[in-house]
C-alpha cells in the first residue's frame, strides 16, 4: 500500500515542475484566473495534456507563496462577476527563464540518450 502511495507522489512531483513552468508561461500574456489558465494550456497543447483543472490550484497557491505570482479578486469584463486573477511578478519572470533553460537542457539530455545516432554538434 505504502509503496503505491510513493509512486503517485513521484509522478505528481515530475508533473509539478512542468506545470509550474506552463502556468508561468501562460501568465506571460497577461493576468488570468484559474479557469482561463487551465483552458489555455489545454487548448495550446491540442488537448494533449489531459489535466484536471483542479490540479492547477495547489500549483497556483504554491507559486504565490514563493512570490512568483500575485493574486487579486477582479471583475471579469465579459461575466460581470469577480474572479481571482493571477499576475506574474518580476521574480516570476526570472524564474520562468530559469525553468525554461532547465527544461531545454533536460530535453536535450533526454534526446541524446533516446536518439544517439543524431550528429554531434561539434
Amino acid at each position: 500500500m505504502s509503496s503505491m502511495a510513493k509512486q503517485t507522489q513521484q509522478r505528481t512531483a515530475v508533473l509539478q515542475g512542468t506545470l509550474d513552468m506552463l502556468i508561468l508561461r501562460t501568465l506571460l500574456y497577461g493576468p488570468a484566473h484559474g479557469h482561463q489558465i487551465g483552458k489555455h494550456i489545454q487548448r495550446t497543447t491540442n488537448e494533449f495534456l489531459q489535466m484536471q483543472h483542479g490540479s492547477l490550484y495547489p500549483a497556483l497557491h504554491r507559486l504565490e507563496r514563493r512570490g512568483w505570482v500575485v493574486s487579486k479578486w477582479e471583475t471579469a469584463p465579459d461575466r460581470n462577476r469577480e474572479f481571482k486573477y493571477y499576475r506574474l511578478t518580476d521574480k516570476g519572470r526570472k524564474q520562468l527563464i530559469v525553468e525554461e533553460s532547465q527544461w531545454k537542457r533536460m530535453a536535450e539530455a533526454v534526446a541524446r540518450v533516446m536518439w544517439p545516432t543524431a550528429p554531434e554538434e561539434n
Binding site: Q52, H53, G54, S55, Y57, P58, A59, H61, R62, R65
Partner: peptide
C-alpha cells in the same frame, strides 16, 4: 468531472501553504 476531486485539491492546496 473536468475539475477533479475537490477535497483532494483542497488538501493539496493546504499542503502548498506549507
Amino acid at each position: 468531472r473536468a475539475f477533479g476531486n475537490a477535497t483532494l485539491i483542497r488538501e493539496q492546496t493546504h499542503e502548498a501553504w506549507g
